[in-house]
């Protein structure tokens, strides 16, 4: 039995989400091939070849694959699918965009956001914003899965798999075209891979205050910055910083929630963090029910004080 892992990368570098999804693939068992779909992506392919436990790396390059748009990427994966029993990808916005399209073309029901591999055909996945965990057995001959990477450690390096080129089918490439990426420029670690996250909520009150209070602490800790939906909706923080059911699901070593009450949709995005710290004026805020350490008080005093004393 063989597994095809559709890699997350940006042509130049391989995302550590790929290494985490590789761990899930290894738990399923069988030979794992990594597919790099892109353009001028040999650097990403070489990085994938170094991961331990990879049989081979397939490199498909074309203009249409440069940004891994869904139509061309799905056509590519379907053209390779005959050799594999399981096709998986990390549940990034790319994986979530492409894999259901693959599943439908193969007439397979996808298992989304796998958090635990029970056996080769049985998986655990969260439903209702993580308020219940479903144990599902996939009955289709081919399994199509996306993996929530927060639950899996990154596979180590130490492999030396061969990289071979595969043809990219032309199918689908006329349906959509890339215009531009408007990506947040930042020297900070990415939310999905950060060891420490400092997150702000509606209590910050304004975009200026959010910057003024949250940023210095994050800088001091080398942390990524996150935000609750309320803070994003109010315009205090960018959309891609949202942590929660409909934003990013994170599991850092340390999550510091500043002025976040802890709606279930937010908790769904961060409750697997190793250590949670909550700073809130309301002693009854639900965030304290999941926090390892809580401080009841004014975040405008406590957060700067915390930064000074670190």
């Amino acid at each position: 039995m063989a597994i095809l892992l559709f890699a997350e990368h940006d042509n130049a570098t391989l995302s550590d989400q790929t290494a985490k999804a590789l761990t899930a693939a290894s738990q399923i068992g069988g030979d794992v091939d990594i597919l790099i779909a892109g353009k001028d992506a040999s650097a990403a392919a070489d990085a994938a070849a170094k991961l331990a436990g990879v049989r081979k790396v397939l490199l498909a390059e074309s203009d249409a694959l440069a940004e891994r748009l869904a139509e061309a990427s799905a056509a590519l994966i379907v053209s390779l699918a005959g050799d594999y029993d399981t096709i998986l990808a990390p549940a990034t916005t790319t994986g979530k965009n492409v894999l259901p399209r693959v599943a439908a073309l193969l007439d397979v029901m996808q298992v989304s956001e796998v958090i635990e591999v029970v056996s080769a055909d049985t998986f655990k996945r969260p439903i209702y914003a993580g308020n219940a965990i479903e144990v599902v057995q996939a009955t289709d001959a081919t399994k199509v899965l996306t993996v929530r990477t927060a639950g899996f450690a990154a596979a180590a390096e130490g492999g030396s798999a061969a990289v071979s080129s595969v043809d990219a089918p032309a199918e689908g490439s006329d349906l959509s075209s890339f215009v531009q990426n408007i990506l947040s420029e930042s020297d900070r670690p990415e939310l999905n891979s950060a060891k420490i996250i400092v997150s702000g909520g509606r209590a910050l009150g304004s975009e200026e205050k959010f910057q003024e209070v949250i940023t210095p602490l994050a800088d001091k800790l080398g942390a990524a910055i996150g935000a609750s939906r309320a803070a994003v909706d109010a315009g205090y923080a960018a959309n891609d910083l949202q942590v929660g059911q409909t934003g990013k699901v994170v599991a850092p070593d340390l999550y510091i929630a500043c002025g976040i009450s802890g709606a279930i949709q937010h908790l769904a995005g961060m409750k697997d963090s190793k250590i949670i710290v909550a700073i809130n004026t309301d002693a009854d805020a639900p965030i304290f029910q999941v926090a390892d350490y809580g401080i009841v008080g004014d975040l405008f005093e406590i957060v700067p004080e915390l930064e000074r004393q670190l």
Partner: peptide, 17 residues
């Protein structure tokens, strides 16, 4: 997909203030 079971998620214990 056969849903074999639906479970409660692991609960976090509240820590200390």
């Amino acid at each position: 997909l056969n849903v074999l079971r639906v479970e409660e998620p692991a609960q976090r214990e509240a820590g200390i203030k």
